[in-house]
C-alpha cells in the first residue's frame, strides 16, 4: 500500500480478494471439492484422521501426490519408499514453477515473495494463473496469485470436511466419479491453455508415452514422460519455425 506519486489502481488487499474471488468463480471449485471428497474416502479407508488429511492438503497441496502419500503410508510402504514416490510425483512442480514465475514477477518482486505462490502452485492454480494473470497489474500479480491459491485451498479443505461426514454413505460409483475429476479436468483445462503447437503436442505425446513407459517397466515414468514428450514437442516447434523462416 504505497503512497507514491503514482496512484495505485489496485491495493494489496483488493488484489488478494480479486484472486480469491477469481478462484471461487473457477470451474476448479467443483473439481477440488469433489476430488478431496474422494481423497477423504481414501484417507478414511486407510485410517487417517480428518485433521491429518487437512494438514496434508495444506502442506503437500497436490491431489495426485496425496493419493500416493495416503495409499503408500496406509498400505504399509516404508517411509523412504513413500518419500521417493511422493517426490517423483512432484518433480512436475519444478518446470511448472519455472514456467509460471516470469508471468508472476513484477518489477520489484523479491525472491522470498515468490515462495508462497510457489507453494500454492498446483495444476488448478497453474492453469488459472496463466489465464488470469495477464489482466492483473504486474506489481500485484504475486498477491493475486496468493489469493487464487488460498481460495483453491479453501475449496479443497471444504471437500475434506464434506468427505469425512459423507463418506460412509457414499456409494463406490460416486467416489469413483470424484477420483475421475482429476484426469478429466486436467485434460480439458490443459487443452484450453495450450495455445502453441509445442504445448498441444506435449499434451498429446504425454498421454501416449506414459502408458508405453509403464508397460516397458521403466522407472521414473512421469519424469521421463515430461522430458521425452516435452523435448519432442519443442523440437517440432523449432523445426516449424525454421521451415517458416526458410520460406520467407
Amino acid at each position: 500500500m504505497s503512497s507514491d506519486a503514482n496512484p495505485e489502481p489496485l491495493s494489496v488487499w483488493s488484489a488478494f480478494f480479486a484472486g480469491l474471488g477469481a478462484s471461487y468463480r473457477s470451474v476448479f471449485v467443483f473439481v477440488l471439492v469433489g476430488t478431496y471428497v474422494g481423497l477423504a474416502a481414501l484417507a478414511q479407508d486407510y485410517g487417517f484422521s480428518l485433521a491429518w488429511l487437512m494438514a496434508s492438503t495444506v502442506l503437500v497441496w497436490a491431489g495426485p501426490s496425496q493419493v500416493i502419500l495416503i495409499s503408500a503410508l496406509g498400505g504399509g510402504a516404508t517411509l523412504a519408499e513413500t518419500a521417493i514416490a511422493v517426490g517423483l510425483s512432484c518433480v512436475r512442480f519444478l518446470p511448472m514453477v519455472v514456467a509460471l514465475l516470469p508471468q508472476m514477477r513484477g518489477p520489484h518482486t523479491r525472491a522470498r515473495d515468490l515462495l508462497l505462490p510457489a507453494h500454492f502452485t498446483a495444476a488448478s492454480m497453474w492453469v488459472e494463473a496463466f489465464r488470469l494473470l495477464p489482466a492483473v497489474p504486474p506489481e500485484r500479480r504475486v498477491v493475486f496469485s496468493n489469493g487464487l491459491g488460498a481460495g483453491f485451498m479453501s475449496c479443497a479443505l471444504l471437500g475434506c470436511i464434506i468427505g469425512y461426514f459423507l463418506t460412509a454413505s457414499l456409494p463406490p460409483l460416486l467416489t469413483a466419479a470424484m477420483l475421475f475429476l482429476t484426469p478429466m479436468s486436467f485434460l480439458i483445462s490443459t487443452a484450453r491453455n495450450a495455445r502453441s503447437l509445442a504445448d498441444r503436442l506435449a499434451l498429446a505425446l504425454g498421454l501416449i508415452i506414459l502408458p508405453l513407459l509403464v508397460y516397458a517397466d521403466i522407472g521414473l515414468d512421469l519424469m521421463w514422460t515430461g522430458i521425452i514428450a516435452g523435448t519432442v514437442a519443442y523440437a517440432v516447434h523449432r523445426l516449424r519455425g525454421h521451415l517458416r523462416g526458410a520460406r520467407r
Binding site: 518446470p95 511448472m96 506435449a202 499434451l203 498429446a204 508415452i209 519424469m223 515430461g226 516435452g230 514437442a233
Partner: peptide, 8 residues
C-alpha cells in the same frame, strides 16, 4: 512443454 507433458 515439459510441464504440460508431465501433466499429460
Amino acid at each position: 512443454a515439459v510441464a504440460t507433458a508431465v501433466l499429460a
